[in-house]
């Protein structure tokens, strides 16, 4: 916690916690809200932790802990750290790996482990440095390209950046010995994501499916619960269906500026095959609206227009 409120408006009173990028004056109560964490062992020395919505992993090393991400608020970060300290008492979090740049996953290292070594993809780092968000610490080490083996404190894993999916530099962590893949804000059970914020849809499906070249049978997503290769395939089918239906909606003259109309169309066209998916009723319309804009606009920005790489993912030999 800190008294630093330098990023807030001049009129803002001293803030009792890190503020992220809020520009409104005054205290941000949601940043101070306690989050109860649940945690469980996964495989080997990997644990998974969640407050019911976001999910991450941490790993016991020989001398300390390698943690991924920070959760999405100062109190979330503190609760995460508290959970690790309870599971692995006396072991410091010496390494923090950022999966991508978004504050709801990596925004609060200053509250979680301010002295840790922080590892991120250079595309993630570019955004973090430019953003200057209060509480989000820049990485101390960056990597580039598609893959990087990490051997840290007796723990071995491969960081994989398969191409643009969501956010910037969003990478997966593959633990080959445990056949476990962790990746945030991509594959998820059901229709778990709202309007697909900061998704790069043109290359999304081919980029993601490159991960199928790796040997794994447990997929740990950044939200909700664990899934597997069947769950991965089901989620990809959903995106393919939404992409097709978005084009149909435009061709059928649906008022694509109306969330209500697009939602009605989504339910009419997609419920039969996909209506049982988790949160279909909540987010099918928003998912479809986002895909409609993809076709109307042609993709957003450089990331949204970068051609997908279809080449098989090459796994370098570990040292």
């Amino acid at each position: 916690m800190t008294d630093d409120s330098t990023l807030a408006d001049d009129a803002a009173p001293v803030s009792p916690c890190h503020r992220g990028i809020f520009t409104i004056a005054g205290v941000i109560p949601s940043q101070l809200q306690w989050r109860d964490m649940t945690y469980e062992p996964l495989r080997g020395k990997i644990w998974t932790v969640s407050e019911g919505i976001n999910r991450s992993i941490f790993i016991e090393g020989k001398t300390g802990v390698i943690a991924f991400d920070t959760f999405g608020s100062p109190m979330g970060a503190i609760a995460y750290r508290s959970a690790i300290d309870r599971v692995l008492p006396g072991k410091p979090v010496h390494t923090l790996v950022y999966t991508h740049d978004h504050l709801d996953h990596t925004g609060y290292a200053a509250d979680f482990a301010p002295d840790a070594r922080i590892v991120a993809h250079e595309l993630t780092q570019n955004v973090i440095v430019a953003r200057q968000s209060d509480g989000q610490l820049p990485a101390t080490e960056t990597w580039s390209g598609e893959t990087a083996w990490c051997e840290i404190d007796g723990v071995r894993f491969l960081l994989v950046y398969p191409g643009p999916t969501h956010g910037d530099g969003n990478c997966a962590a593959w633990f080959p010995d445990l056949k476990l893949l962790f990746m945030v804000d991509t594959i998820i059970p059901g229709v778990g994501y709202t309007f697909l914020p900061d998704w790069h849809l043109a290359s999304y499906i081919p980029t993601l499916t490159r991960l199928l070249a790796l040997e794994w049978d447990v997929f740990v997503p950044g939200h909700f619960w664990l899934t597997d290769r069947d769950g991965f395939a089901e989620n990809v089918r959903w995106y393919e269906a939404v992409a097709e239906t978005a084009q149909e909606a435009i061709a059928d003259g649906v008022d694509v500026d109306s969330l209500h109309e697009v939602t009605r169309y989504a339910h009419e066209r997609l419920a039969a095959d996909h209506g049982a998916l988790f949160r279909f009723n909540e987010y099918a319309g928003m998912n479809l609206l986002r895909y409609v804009y993809e076709f109307v606009h042609g993709g957003w920005g450089v990331e949204g227009n970068t051609p997908a790489c279809h080449a098989p993912l090459e796994v370098p030999h570990a040292h």
């Binding site: 992220g20 990028i21 809020f22 999405g72 740049d101 978004h102 504050l103 709801d104 925004g107 570019n126 955004v127 440095v129 430019a130 953003r131 200057q132 968000s133 989000q136 956010g167 910037d168 709202t194 309007f195 914020p197 900061d198 920005g301 990331e303």
Partner: peptide
């Protein structure tokens, strides 16, 4: 969601 995620890419930052 902008304030939740922090803005999207280097464009949507103070550095623009």
């Amino acid at each position: 969601h902008h304030y939740l995620t922090g803005g999207w890419s280097t464009e949507d930052t103070p550095a623009a």
